[in-house]
Every structure is written in C-alpha cells, then in structure tokens.
Simulated scan of single mutants.
Amino acid sequence: MNGTTRTSDDPAAFVETVRSVLREQRLRARRSQADVAIAVASSRKRVSDFELGLVDPGFGFVAALAAELGVPLSISTPADPFGGREPLFVDNTPAEVI
C-alpha cells in the first residue's frame, strides 16, 4: 500500500483500506481464513465476514488479525485534545484520524 489514506473525508474508505490490506497480507502469506481464525481465537466465518465488509468486529479483532499477519497497526492519540490529531498508521501508511 503506497501513499497516504485520509479518512477525514471518507471514514468508510479507510476501513475498507484496512480490510483490503489485511486480506492481501493473508493471501500473500498463503494462509487460509480458517488458519488465521484459529490463531486469533475466532471463526473462519468472522474472518470472512470481516474481509467482505459484512461486519465490523471491533478494534480488538482487527488488532489481533494485524499482529498475526505481521501488519503494523498503530494509533496515536491527539497530542492536544483540543487541537490537531496525530496520524493513524496501517501498514506504515499514515491516515488522518477524525
């Protein structure tokens, strides 16, 4: 994934990017949905539904999946709660948190 993904205009686009990056990494690693699901204590259906965009399983699931697949995922909190926000990184690509 190259470039910067900004979510201030379209948060759904950022979520879709996260789904896409995680699915692509799973496929590159030649791992099945079932294999990854077992590794993150979930079900193959939940992984499939997430990859298809049918559910939003929450940050814990996404973080576990990212860790299992070796995809860097970090969220920075606002430096100043009343000012600007720090970036969110997925696969080393910054995206603005809204």
Score class of each variant (00 low, 15 high):
Thr5Cys: 06
Pro57Ile: 10
Gly58Lys: 15
Phe89Leu: 09
Phe14Ile: 03
Phe59Pro: 13
Ser42Cys: 07
Asp80Pro: 02
Val15His: 11
Glu51Gly: 11
Leu65Pro: 02
Ile98Phe: 11
Leu69Asn: 01
Arg44Ser: 04
Glu51Met: 11
Pro87Cys: 03
Val40Leu: 12
Thr77Asp: 09
Ala67Leu: 09
Phe82Asp: 07
Ser43Lys: 03
Val15Lys: 12
Pro72Asn: 06
Ser32Leu: 10
Ser48Phe: 02
Glu68Gly: 03
Gln33Val: 00
Gln25Val: 14
Gly84Trp: 05
Arg19Asn: 13
Pro94Asp: 00
Lys45Cys: 01
Asp10Ile: 02
Ala12Tyr: 09
Val15Glu: 13
Thr93Asn: 02
Ala41Pro: 12
Ile75Val: 14
Asn2Val: 09
Thr77Ser: 10
Ala41Gly: 08
Pro94Ser: 01
Arg31Trp: 08
Glu86Leu: 09
Ile38Gly: 08
Ser76Gly: 11
Leu69Ala: 03
Leu88Ala: 03
Val15Asp: 14
Leu52Cys: 12
Gln25Glu: 15
Val36Ile: 09
Thr4Arg: 06
Glu51Leu: 14
Leu69Trp: 00
Pro87Leu: 05
Phe61Trp: 09
Ser48Asp: 08
Glu51Asn: 10
Ser43Tyr: 00
Phe50Glu: 11
Ala64Val: 01
Ala37Ile: 06
Ser43Thr: 10
Val90Trp: 00
Glu86Gly: 07
Val21Asn: 00
Ala34Trp: 00
Arg19Tyr: 08
Asp80Trp: 01
Val21Ser: 00
Leu52Val: 11
Pro11Val: 03
Asp10Ser: 08
Thr77Glu: 12
Thr5Asn: 06
Phe61Ala: 13
Glu86Pro: 08
Leu69Pro: 04
Ser74Leu: 13
Gln25Trp: 07
Ala34Met: 01
Arg85Phe: 02
Ser76Ala: 13
Leu22Pro: 14
Val97Phe: 02
Lys45Asp: 10
Ser42Lys: 05
Asp56Ile: 15
Leu54Ala: 11
Ser42Ala: 06
Leu65Trp: 00
Gly60Tyr: 06
Arg26Gln: 10
Leu73Asn: 01
Gly60Val: 13
Arg6Asn: 09
Val21Met: 01
Val90Met: 08
Gly70Thr: 04
Leu73Thr: 00
Arg44Met: 02
Thr4Asn: 06
Gly70Ile: 05
Ile98Gly: 14
Val90Asp: 04
Leu73Ser: 01
Ile75Met: 07
Ala37Cys: 09
Ala13Asp: 08
Pro57Ala: 11
Phe82Ala: 05
Gly3Leu: 12
Arg6Val: 05
Glu16Lys: 07
Phe89Ile: 12
Arg30Ser: 15
Asn92Glu: 09
Thr4Glu: 04
Phe89Pro: 01
